[in-house]
Simulated assay, not measured.
Amino acid sequence: MTSFVTTPIFYANGDPHLGHAYSGIIADIFHRFRQLSGQQNIFITGTDEHGLKIASTAQSAGTDVSEFVDTKAAVFSGLWPELDIHPDIFIRTTQQEHKDHISAVWQQLLENNDIYLGKYSGQYCVACEQFYSPRELESNLCPVHKREVETVEEETYLFQLEKYRQRLLEYYLTHPDLITPKHFQDSIVSLLQEGPLEDLSVSRINNAWGIKVPDNNEHTVYVWIDALFSYITAIQQT
Rank of each mutant, 00 (worst) to 15 (best):
Q193W: 03
I188T: 14
V189F: 04
K212E: 02
F184G: 07
Q185R: 03
E198G: 10
S201M: 05
Y222D: 14
D215P: 05
F184N: 11
I205A: 09
L191F: 02
V221P: 03
H219G: 08
K212Q: 09
T220H: 10
S190F: 05
D215M: 11
Q193Y: 06
H183A: 13
D186V: 08
I225D: 03
S190Y: 00
P196V: 07
I188N: 11
S201P: 15
W209S: 01
V189T: 13
L191Q: 12
T220R: 10
S201Q: 03
A208R: 13
I205Q: 10
Q185T: 09
S201L: 00
G195W: 03
E194G: 05
Q193D: 05
L191T: 15
Q193E: 15
N216R: 12
E194H: 02
L197R: 06
V189P: 03
Q193A: 06
S187R: 04
S187N: 09
V221A: 06
N206R: 13
D199W: 06
R204H: 08
G195C: 08
N217H: 13
P196R: 00
S201H: 02
H219T: 06
V221C: 04
E198F: 04
H219S: 02
N207E: 14
Q193L: 08
S190V: 01
I211K: 08
K212R: 13
L200Q: 11
W224Q: 11
S190I: 01
H219I: 06
I225M: 00
I211P: 06
V223W: 01
W224F: 15
I225G: 00
A208G: 07
V221Q: 06
V221L: 06
W224K: 05
P214L: 14
P214G: 10
F184D: 06
V202F: 08
D186P: 05
L191M: 11
L200F: 10
V202A: 05
S190N: 14
Q193F: 02
Y222S: 14
Y222F: 11
G195A: 12
S201G: 12
P214M: 12
R204G: 01
N216Q: 12
L191V: 10
V202D: 05
Q185I: 04
N217Q: 13
N216C: 09
L197H: 12
V213N: 02
L197G: 09
H219P: 06
L192H: 11
L191H: 11
P214W: 12
N216T: 09
S190G: 10
N206L: 03
T220L: 08
H219W: 04
E194F: 03
W209F: 02
T220Y: 07
A208I: 06
W209C: 00
E218P: 02
V223H: 04
G195L: 05
S187G: 08
S190H: 11
T220Q: 07
N207M: 11
I211D: 03
A208F: 08
N217R: 13
W209H: 13
V221W: 04
V223N: 00
R204P: 01
I205K: 14
F184Y: 15
I225L: 02
W224I: 14
Y222T: 03
D215E: 15
V189C: 11
E194K: 12
L200H: 07
P196H: 00
R204I: 01
T220M: 10
E194V: 07
D215R: 12
L200W: 11
H183F: 15
E218K: 12
Y222W: 02
Y222C: 09
